[in-house]
Each structure stands twice: as C-alpha cells, then as structure tokens.
Design a protein around this nucleic acid. Structure first.
Lengths: 336, 336
DNA sequence: CTGTTAGCGCATTCAT
DNA sequence: ATGAATGCGCTAACAG
C-alpha cells in the first residue's frame, strides 16, 4: 500500500496525491476530494519513514532512562510522551539497564534511527555518552553548556530550599543524628548523581552548623524476596542510632520503611522521603516528603527539546521545577 | 554523514562499504578493515530508516497503553523493552490517555511508522482499533483468533485459581459480606475488561454458593488532592458494611487504604489487592494480594510477537502467566 | 492546475 | 573482489 496505489485508484499522478495529502501547492478541489476519498477507502497512511528520507526530520525523539522500575520514571515518561505527542512526535523508549555500555549502544541506535532529539532521563555513561550525541549533532535535554548550568542551578535552588525546610524542621524537632539513605551506585552517576550530591551537601552543611550528625547509609542494593536491607537494620539498631531517616529516592522509601519495621513511627524514629506518591499518603502514618513534580519537569524539559529541534534558542524560560517540603505525620520530636 | 562519506574516506565504492558493514558478499579482508576503520573514525552508523526502505522491516515495535500512571504499566513496559531490545528491536511507546479516538490516532501513527508489530497493553478502542491493525496486516499481541482464546483461557485459569484461593480464605475467615472495588470505566473496556469481569464472575459464583454477599463498589474516579473516595467511605460506614475489601487493581489499593483509614486492619476490615509491589509488603500490616507477574507476562507476550513477525506460527507455548494468592497480615477473622 | 523527474541513504542485482 | 546502476516511498523542483 503506497502512494502509487492511491494515485492509480484516484486516476491521478503520485505528485497530485502528495499535494492533496500535504495541502501543498495547487490541486483542484474536486480532484483533492477524490484523492482523499481513495485514501480513506484504501486505508492509506503515508510512510513516515519514506517521508523522513526527504525531509531529514523523523518526528521521533528518544527517551533514555536507566531502569524502568522506579514509578518516578513512569511519571517522567508520561510527561515526555504527552508533550512529544502534542508536538506531533513519537517517542522511542530505551532503558540502559544501568549499564554504561548498554547506554552507549542504545544511543548509537538512536543515532541510527536518526531521532530528532533525545531526552536524557538518567545518564549512567557520563561524558562518553554525551560525546555520542555531540558528535552526531543530536539535540538533547538537559542541554550542554550554559543553559545546562541555568537548569542545574534552578533545580538545585528548588531542591535546596525544600531540603533546608526539611532539615530545619528536623533540627527544630530535636533530632541530633540523622541518616540519609542512598544507593551508592546512584550517587556515583554523573547526571542524577550531581543532583543527589547537591542535596546531600546542603543537608550536611545545615546539620554541621547545628551540630547534628549526618550518617550516609548505603543500601548497597534493593532487597528482593521480602528480605530487607541489612545495612539499614544494622544501623538502626546500633547504640546511638539515628532518630530520623531520610530516603534520597522515592523507590527507596518502602524498603526503608520495611527495614525500620519494629520501630514506631514517629515515636521511635522520624521518616522523610524524597518523592511523593499516593502510597506515601496512604501509608500510616502518612509519610513526610519532599515532593518534586517529575511530570511537570519532564514536560518542560521535552518542550525545551522540541523548541531546540525547531532551531529556537534554548532559554531558561522553560524551566519549571518545583520542589516542596510536605510535612505529614511521619516526623515528630526526637525520642528521649 | 552517509555511506557515501565513508566510501570516499576509505577510497572504495558505497557498495563495498555496504558489504563490509553487513558482512555480506565478497570483500577483501584488507579492504574490509579499512572500511571499518573509516566507519569508526567518522562515527558512522547506517540509517535504520534508509535500511528499512529496502528491507521493509523497521526493527521497531509499538507498545500501546492506556495511561502511564499505574506502576503495573511500568512493569509491562519494562518487559516489552527488554525483550524487544534482546531481539534487536526498539520500542515506540504511545499512550491513548484512555481515549478511543486518541488510541486510533496512535495506531494510525504506528501504521505510518511501519512498525513491525504492536504490543497491546490495554486497548480502550475495541474492535475498531483492532480493525486498523488487521487492515494493515500488522502483527500484534495479544493476537486475534484461536490463539487469543488459548491465551485468555490460560490467563483466566491462572487468575481464577488464585481468586478462588482468596475467596475461599475469606469465607473460611467468616466474612459474610465482601466489597469488590473497581473503576467502572476500566471494567467496561473490551480487552482488560474481559479479564476483570472473568475474575469478578468467579468470585460471584463462589460467594453465591457460600451465601456471601458481594458488593461491587465503583470508585468512579481516582481521588486527587489528598481527598479520598467518597464512595468507599460511604459504603464502609453504612450499617452492615462489608468486612472485607478487595481492590481489583494495584493502583486502586492505596486509594482504598486511604479511604478505609480509621478502621483497623485486619481487626475491623480485611483488605486484599490484585497486584503486588514493594509498597504492599512495606505497608503495615502487609497487604494480602493476588500477585500477577506482569513483567513476565509482557516478556512472553513480546517474545510471541517477535516470533510472529518472523513468520513463526503462534502457539500457546509462549504463554507464561502466573498468578498467586499471597496471604499476609491484612486479612483476619470477620469481626463479631 | 497537473505530470514527469530527481534524489533522500541504503542493499542488491548485474557487470566487470 | 569491486563498482555502476536500480529502486524502496515519498516530496519538491521543474515542465507543461
């Protein structure tokens, strides 16, 4: 089923069909109607692939994430897909499964697909991965250069403010030792790692000024099979254990709660999570969080990409990050 | 950057480059090495799009889901992406946002992209949507015809068995009135609706035999802004209210728990959810569920699609559905 | 207003 | 073993 078939069916040349489809150039109203009718009847849709051969635009963008496990990634994809869709784009989703090699291979595949742009959800491959995009002149967000700096500082500003609100509240509640739970592996990453480290630094400084001890607890890996994090369990039972726990990541929160089971919240320990979801509010007690609107972030990031593809200069105007400290019942005065 | 540039750089013709790349036909070892070197140096990747113009295979599949909100969809996508990736395919993800029109439009776009196949996560558009795939001869799973029947019965068998285990346990615990919480909207859908109805029927029959009343509670829509389902709240406070609640869907579970807040679990009410996740086990008390391995299902479904694309006949051999009733502490004897 | 023609980047004959 | 030529489905420039 090609444009040729339609042309034959309508008794015109392929050029006329093309013009009728694209509303481009001159074509008699009557002829146009006939062509459109043939099209409908034959169920013809012009091949985007052939079309992109000529236009050198594929109307396709790639979205690359590390792992499709964290519900936050879903929020992210939802934003990307929605925005892309509104702009007439379609989204190629690839997961690097946390491997830099796989990530580079996936990026090469995006190159082969000649995507118009790429949204970087999480980058695990660092500079070498970015080099691939640069080398092939593929538009991408977060973007390189000065705008990236603006984006980062916007992100950091939002996140730092919310983090400070959280930290201050914990201090106010009398906590003297706080645990910050991470997956070290995530912290090491260049892209998201940057953000995570920024948050951590803010907290560290704030606490150090107030004489509060901040422990970095590495969960090592996500527990499976209903087992729970030995690291957290051990750390929470030690003498002088932290009285407040912060999960650096929404996906870590349930694991943390599971490991803290046996301790009463917030009587024995206070709990805070980064990232909000219905589960955090449905939990009893409802969990205090620092919410970040990932969907919104993805939308503004993708809008930025589409503009960039259209050759519009990137500005900070798009940036739409929002982080908020939402206090619920999972934090309370430090015990004793 | 095209094959031409590589040819020029290596001092050979484009035909030779093509042969060197694809390991196809004769090409002197020395020449091949030179070409490959040029390729690497220039960072060239052959355009999949141009390639597919000739081969009429795009090495692309589409995955269509209703909404990118339910974490279960993420499990699904993860399975699809992984399996597709292993087969050298790349995945175009589109969401219909619950609208049949948008779904059909998305399918038309898949047609335009000439995808080799489509994985139907959730279909909201019914026969008319399927007709699009049929008309364009696009391979898809779940497949039409007799294999579909086999798939369905496999699914229903697994799910029914687990559902019966659950129902029997509730009866055993002395529950005389059970609420089954749904989003009616979902139930009406042709594809997933079928499955949901099958489960419900099993439960209805089982309970009717045992003289247990089964209420269908429609949550109408997912609450927002920290409000909770009025329907559930009202129903749970009425005289003679159900003593056990079943959420037909993993995403409904936290909303149900939220609405049931104030009642003690399992002393006042027992709770069961369809679909498992770390949150269900991290909740206190841990929630009893009927788990379904969506990731595995997606993988086997996608494997089936890839085989189908390769012209292999579809058999029931691929089917790999697993449902299990997992009793945790959220269910107990009926009060009074 | 409409038809003919020339590529877009690649794989594949068919010659050499 | 290699190169020149053809065509995949489409759009755009040019001719009529």
């Amino acid at each position: 089923m090609t444009i040729k078939d339609v042309a034959a069916h309508a008794g015109v040349s392929i050029a006329t069909v093309s013009r009728a489809i694209n509303d481009n150039g001159y074509v008699a109203a009557e002829v146009k109607a006939r062509v459109l009718a043939s099209m409908k009847q034959l169920g013809f849709r012009p091949s985007e692939r052939a079309r992109s051969m000529r236009s050198s635009r594929t109307m396709t963008i790639g979205a690359i994430v590390s792992e499709l496990v964290n519900p936050v990634h879903l929020e992210f994809l939802r934003g990307v897909e929605k925005t892309a869709n509104e702009g007439g784009y379609v989204v190629l989703v690839v997961s690097s499964q946390g491997s830099p090699d796989k990530e580079r291979e996936s990026l090469q595949r995006m190159v082969a697909e000649r995507v118009d742009g790429v949204v970087l959800g999480t980058l695990v491959g660092g500079r070498k991965s970015l080099a691939i995009l640069a080398e092939h002149n593929i538009a991408h967000v977060p973007p390189p250069g000065p705008v990236a700096a603006a984006l980062n500082s916007a992100w950091v500003a939002e996140e730092s403010a919310a983090t400070r609100d959280m930290g201050r509240r914990l201090i106010e509640l009398g906590h003297r030792r706080v645990a910050y739970v991470v997956l070290q592996e995530t912290l090491d990453r260049r892209s998201s790692g940057f953000h995570h480290r920024a948050r951590f630094e803010v907290l560290k400084e704030l606490f150090s000024d107030a004489g509060v001890t901040l422990d970095l607890v590495d969960m090592a890996r996500l527990p499976t099979d209903g087992s729970c994090s030995e690291e957290v369990v051990a750390h929470s039972r030690a003498p002088g254990a932290p009285t407040a726990w912060v999960a650096c990541n929404h996906i870590l929160l349930p694991y943390l709660l599971d490991a803290l089971s046996g301790l009463r919240i917030p009587d024995d320990v206070s709990v805070v999570g980064y990232g909000d979801s219905i589960w955090a509010t449905a939990y009893r007690p409802p969990i205090t969080v620092i919410s970040h609107d990932t969907y919104r972030e993805a939308r503004s990031l993708t809008a930025m990409l589409l503009d960039s593809i259209d050759g519009k200069p990137l500005t900070s105007a798009h940036i739409d990050y929002r982080s908020r400290f939402i206090e619920r019942e999972s934090i309370g005065p430090a015990p004793r």
